[in-house]
Write a protein that binds this DNA or RNA. Structure first.
Length: 749
DNA sequence: GCTTGAGTGAAG
DNA sequence: TTCACTCAAGCT
């Protein structure tokens, strides 16, 4: 990091002799340090301070005048752009809201510059002396590369080795002989800034009007939140791009938040088509070097648009004018480990601190956001028709009580027929089932033994590709045995029920000539491979896609005309108060994948409950009625956004310890809130209530037992204060036991 | 989060 | 006695 344009001019104000420095570790209070004579420090400055035996990076949080004699001294000031007041305010607020130590929140904001400080200089090679005395064939090829290049060529070692078809060792040898020399390469120039006038996109009148309203918000220098609600394929992205253009024209920066998996080449290319260049990317797949460069570019204000995953919320924007949260209903925006926060809600607050416009975009908004839009807390812009006159897919249910597939098969005859027609027409078909693995249950035909997880008693799911049985609850894996562990019978194990792998097997047998791809989050290769495969589907390299929920996320497959839902009832019965909302959102997104190109699409939904409100809403398109019912149910239950909800999570490796601790914590909570765990009054009760152990079953997640105590409060209650009091009064967690707080998404305004 | 120092227990 | 490990406290 070099020059610092954002730094305040040499302060005329009296220099503080003591500063409070927040350190990116798990402490909540900023520590006071003495300022050495001659060092000018202002709030937001990065500094190096002694902490215990080590030295650590910190940020000046407050510059109070004087005081304290036996304080340690600030070691030095680090020449990076300071953390601006809006980001400092955001860090403080987020820490208070999530009840996390402020240092931990700061950590999320300063993890990147640690890379920046270590940014390595890259070296190149150029010709410096006479050819070597001993000219081997490999050396000759290296010299040939320089001969072929014009003028003073400077090449990286890797590029040179590749061009010459030799190993890097050959090049090192030439450097030793003095034929070549290493020179520092200038840093890559930043990519050109996005140009709001670069691409012309034809918007239809409805889109143009919506775009104008969003652009107006983005051009203002004030905090607003607007819900952009548009059916899948209505051109939401192109519409909010106009808000991005407005922010660019106003000279301010934009952050586009996307669920990690939606950050594909496809999205970046759409952006490039409109703005002439790709946005800066920010997610876990971006290399350290590129992150470091992005961080400084964002801090200096040179980078105007960032497309990123939830961690990009903490980037040091110099002048943030617009935050877009795409697919705002996505559960992936919720961070569960470490500081637990909901990125959509935090985006709203970041916007508030930055005086920026916030746009929440979704085809199926979350209930919280929908209610906030209806009550006028958020603006509401709607796109009701598909772009360019394209129609929504034709939807039909396949009633599994009447039109069931033959025994041992899962794809109903009607759906088989539809897939055959689709593939024959040169189009793509999607078979969707939200269940990973081959079969959710394995049992012994001879003795009836069910394979359950030894750690948490959930069913073990067979994964045939891997030859393993897996517990989706706690991650426990074991090899699939050849015989029954109870009665010893050989070859008696049967797989019950379908998973995506089994559907893929069935589809492969039914359509042997079709090119098929299975997409599931547990497939090897990680997110990078997944991104590539999604792009391959978009390019039409696959006829039949068999996938779990990740195929629903923000992808445009122009040649996909059929969506078949294998089992629409999955997830409706699992006791989660959001089950219906989640299922509706998921199925709406999946069916919406069909017919986004020129050819019309259709969706077939296999279900045992065609009369369920979720199915009715999907089939009739009467979304309003569905939302109405769900919102009323929330209101009745006093759940967000009508009430406030948090969970105290007790976790540990010892089941009994977790249970006793949770009970003790619950007792402390009852003492403070006066709640009765077994007689919960619904609605806006005047006191905070705790759902006790009786209602909160113990779960096992990633090898740890976990107990959730739900704390419910009316909107007006001081939930954070109450949680703090409970934590202070409750027993102290020790050893592997941990107590975390999870504040559920809701509205702040 | 990280370091440190106390405490524990098994091997030497 | 020594090493290897876990655990809890404190860091300005």
């Amino acid at each position: 990091m070099t020059a610092d344009p954002a730094a305040p001019p040499a302060a005329p104000a009296p220099q503080p002799t003591v500063v409070d420095v927040l350190i990116p570790v798990a402490v909540d209070t900023a520590y006071s340090y003495r300022v050495p004579k001659g060092l000018a420090l202002a709030p937001g400055d990065f500094v190096v301070v002694p902490l215990g035996t080590r030295e650590t990076l910190g940020v000046v949080w407050d510059a109070r005048g004087a005081g304290g004699d036996n304080l340690k001294q600030v070691l030095s000031r680090v020449d990076w752009p300071p953390v601006r007041a809006p980001l400092r305010g955001f860090v403080d607020w987020l820490a208070a809201w999530t009840l996390s130590p402020r240092g931990m929140v700061l950590r999320m904001a300063v993890r990147a510059p640690e890379f920046a400080g270590a940014e390595p200089v890259r070296f190149g090679l150029r010709r410096a002396g006479p050819p070597p005395a001993r000219l081997t064939p490999a050396r000759g090829r290296v010299m040939g590369v320089f001969d072929a290049a014009e003028g003073e060529a400077v090449l990286t070692k890797r590029a040179l080795a590749e061009a010459a078809g030799c190993s890097p060792g050959v090049i090192d040898g030439l450097v030793d002989e003095g034929t070549l020399e290493t020179v520092a390469l200038p840093p890559d120039p930043l990519p050109p800034a996005p140009d709001p006038e670069a691409g012309t996109v034809a918007l239809d009148p409805a889109q143009a009007e919506a775009a104008a309203r969003l652009a107006e918000r983005a051009a203002e220098r004030r905090f607003t939140v607007t819900l952009l609600e548009g059916v899948t394929g209505s051109g939401k992205t192109e519409t909010y791009f106009e808000a991005v253009a407005a922010a660019l024209r106003a000279g301010r920066q934009t952050l586009i938040l996307l669920p990690e998996i939606a950050l594909t080449a496809q999205f970046l290319d759409r952006f490039a088509a409109r703005f002439g260049t790709r946005p800066s990317e920010w997610h876990s797949g971006v290399s350290v070097r590129r992150r470091a460069r992005a961080w400084s570019g964002i801090a200096s204000g040179d980078i105007k648009v960032v497309a990123g995953a939830r961690s990009s919320l903490f980037l040091p924007f110099a002048d943030l004018g617009l935050i877009v949260v795409d697919e705002e209903h996505e559960a992936a925006y919720k961070q569960d480990d470490g500081v637990s926060y909901h990125a959509r809600d935090m985006a709203v607050m970041r916007g508030r601190f930055e005086e920026a416009a916030v746009v929440l975009a979704s085809a199926t908004p979350s209930l919280e956001t929908r209610v906030n839009a209806e009550t006028g807390r958020y603006g509401h812009v709607r796109l009701d028709a598909r772009y360019a006159g394209r129609s929504l897919p034709a939807l039909a249910a396949i009633d599994l009580r009447r039109d069931a597939p033959p025994r041992g098969r899962w794809i109903a005859p009607k759906l088989v027929e539809a897939v055959a027609e689709t593939v024959a027409a040169g189009r793509q078909a999607l078979l969707f089932l939200n269940r990973r693995g081959y079969a959710p249950l394995t049992l012994c035909r001879s003795c009836g033994h069910r394979f359950t997880c030894g750690q948490c008693s959930a069913w073990m799911v067979e994964h045939r590709f891997r030859g393993a049985l897996m517990c989706h609850h706690c991650g426990h894996v074991e090899r699939k045995p050849g015989h029954c562990p109870r009665c010893g019978e050989v070859d008696a194990l049967v797989a019950c029920g379908p998973g995506v792998e089994r559907i893929a097997e069935e589809a492969a047998a039914l359509f042997p000539d079709a090119r098929q791809l299975v997409l599931s989050s547990d497939m090897p290769g990680g997110t990078e491979r997944l991104r590539q495969e999604l792009d391959a589907v978009a390019r039409g390299e696959v006829d039949i896609v068999v996938g779990t929920q990740l195929v629903a996320k923000g992808h445009n497959f122009p040649n996909l005309t059929l969506a078949g839902i294998i089992d629409a009832d999955v997830g409706l019965a699992n006791g989660d108060p959001r089950a219906a909302e989640r299922t509706f959102q998921l199925l709406q997104q999946v069916t919406g994948r069909a017919g986004r190109g020129e050819a019309p699409g259709r969706a077939l939904i296999q279900t045992f409950q065609p009369d369920h409100p979720v199915m009715r809403a999907l089939l009739t398109g009467d979304v309003e009625r569905f939302y109405r019912t769900e919102i009323e149910a929330r209101q009745q239950a006093g759940l967000p956004p009508f009430g406030r909800l948090a969970a105290l999570i007790v976790s540990g490796t010892d089941r009994t310890a977790v249970e006793t601790h949770a009970r003790a914590l619950a007792r402390a909570a009852y003492g403070i809130t006066g709640g009765d765990p077994l007689a919960l009054a619904p609605g806006d009760a005047p006191r905070i209530e705790v759902f006790g152990p009786a209602e909160a079953p113990i779960a096992m997640i990633r090898g740890r037992y976990r107990f959730r105590l739900l704390v419910k409060a009316p909107r007006s209650a001081d939930l954070q204060g109450c949680l703090r009091a409970i934590l202070a009064a409750g027993p102290k967690a020790t050893g592997s036991l941990r107590v975390a707080v999870d504040v559920e998404p809701q509205s702040f305004l």
